[in-house]
Simulated assay, not measured.
Amino acid sequence: MTRIDAKFAELRAANKKAFVAYVMAGDPDYATSLEIVKGLPAAGVDIIELGLPFTDPMADGTTIQLAGQRALDGAMTLDQTLSIAAELRKTDDTTPIVLMGYYNPIYSRGVDTFLVQAKAAGIDGLIIVDLPPEEDEELCIPAQAAGLNFIRLATPTTDAKRLPKVLQNTSGFVYYVSVTGTTGAAAAQAVDVAPEVARIKASTDLPVIVGFGVRTPQTAQDIAGVADGTVVGSAIVEKIGAGEPVADVLAFVKTLADGAHRA
Rank of each mutant, 00 (worst) to 15 (best):
T81S: 03
Q168S: 11
P28N: 05
A18W: 01
T216W: 00
V226K: 02
E244M: 15
P164A: 00
E244C: 14
A31K: 14
Q218R: 14
A188D: 01
G74K: 11
G125L: 00
I4D: 07
V208H: 09
D192S: 11
D258E: 13
A9N: 11
G110S: 06
A43K: 09
K161I: 15
I200A: 07
A13N: 09
D93L: 13
T94D: 15
A85E: 02
R199I: 10
T155N: 03
P217L: 05
L153G: 11
K201L: 04
P245Q: 03
H261A: 09
L115V: 08
R12E: 12
Q117K: 14
I128H: 00
D222Q: 12
D192W: 08
V129S: 14
V232A: 09
E10W: 15
A121R: 09
E238W: 13
T2I: 02
N15E: 14
R109S: 08
L139Q: 06
R215V: 14
I223E: 03
Y103L: 07
R109Q: 12
D192C: 03
F252A: 01
P41K: 07
F150V: 12
D73T: 13
D60T: 07
R215L: 12
A31R: 15
L115A: 08
I209S: 04
A146R: 10
M24V: 11
V231R: 06
V191N: 15
I47Q: 01
D29S: 09
T32S: 13
D60I: 06
D228I: 03
D130K: 00
V129A: 14
T63S: 09
A247E: 15
T182I: 15
A260F: 05
L11S: 04
G51N: 07
L148D: 03
F8E: 04
A257D: 01
F252R: 10
T95K: 07
V174S: 13
L148H: 08
L82M: 10
V231P: 08
Q117D: 14
G39M: 07
V193C: 02
A67F: 06
T2A: 00
A42V: 06
L131H: 10
V129I: 14
I36A: 05
A160D: 14
L206E: 13
A247M: 12
Q65H: 10
Y30A: 11
V129G: 10
I128L: 02
